[in-house]
Amino acid sequence: MDYAFDFARVWEYRWVFGRSILLTVEISLLSIMLGTAIGVLVGGIRAIDKPSAWVWPLWALSTFYVYLQLAIPALVLLVWMYYCLPLLGIGLSSYWTAVIALGINLSPFAAEIFRSSLRNMPRGELQAARAMGYTEWQTLVHFTLPQFLRNSVPPLMGQYYTTVKMSSLASVIGVFEIINTAQEVINSTYKTLEVYTAVALCYALIVIPFALLAKRYEDRVFVERT
């Protein structure tokens, strides 16, 4: 196949792609914040070993929520929310529908990571801290939170990468993130291969910094442990 790439036409739309990158980052970060917040709440409830009678309904509801959301594909949730919520009297823009849907999609994965981290906390270390005279607050700050973050952050980063890439699904409901912008540029330039090459580079510009931050954090944790 003899094809001569011509990126000059695509370069003319660099500012358009720049705006779409910023929009993608906005959607991704808001979704990550929402999904993490829900995950902390749900994961904390699910981590209770033997819920009491009044906590059990919350534990059961959290468990049902996790398995339900794990079963629903992100695209299905996104489209359902966009078309069905207005029928229920809830009017959301396509932007906020994407944020909430992607946040909900992330939340069960975050919840399971947090639940596992809480369940695997070194009980002996915490008991030793209390025996040495640390208060509950000091134990939380100096022992519980550092251990929790060491266990949670590396697997969470993998889910965050996925959420960034899933932001491309917002194009199906009219959000002008990278994919929708790319389609508009293709319609104007007819340079499909060049445009999708530019799309790949746009996502690399977003995801690689996340990966570098995660690697730096993991290296720091490894040094602290050794």
Rank of each mutant, 00 (worst) to 15 (best):
I21T: 04
W11G: 14
L23N: 08
W96K: 07
Y13T: 11
Y134T: 11
S188Q: 14
V195S: 01
I104A: 02
Y134L: 15
W11S: 14
M33W: 06
L34F: 02
L193S: 11
G133C: 04
R9P: 10
A211H: 10
P108R: 14
L58R: 09
K165E: 01
S52T: 15
L22A: 14
A74D: 05
R150P: 05
T36G: 02
F222L: 15
S107E: 00
V55R: 13
L118G: 11
R123F: 09
C202S: 06
P73M: 03
V195A: 01
E218G: 05
Q159I: 08
G103E: 00
L61V: 15
L75F: 04
Q159P: 05
Q183M: 11
I178W: 00
Q138N: 07
R216P: 05
L126D: 04
S116V: 12
S116E: 07
L201R: 09
Y82K: 10
E125Q: 15
S167K: 08
M166W: 11
G39R: 04
L149G: 07
I72E: 00
E218V: 10
F210G: 06
G133F: 02
L85I: 05
Q69P: 14
V175I: 03
W59T: 14
S107M: 01
T139S: 08
R9C: 12
P108N: 07
R46T: 11
A200Y: 02
R220I: 10
A60R: 11
L102G: 06
R14F: 06
D219H: 14
T226Y: 12
Y160L: 08
A211M: 12
V79G: 02
F143R: 13
L149P: 06
R14Y: 09
M121Q: 14
V153P: 04
T97S: 01
F114A: 11
L29P: 05
T189I: 00
P155I: 08
L212V: 14
V195G: 01
R119P: 08
I178E: 00
P86A: 05
V185S: 02
F176I: 13
L30A: 10
L68F: 12
S171H: 09
T189L: 00
S188V: 09
L205T: 09
Q127I: 13
E224K: 09
V199T: 02
I113F: 05
L23C: 09
N151S: 15
L78Y: 01
W11E: 13
A74N: 09
A98Q: 04
R130V: 15
A4G: 09
E184C: 10
Y203K: 11
I32S: 02
L85P: 04
Y67A: 14
S62C: 13
I38L: 03
L87V: 12
A110L: 07
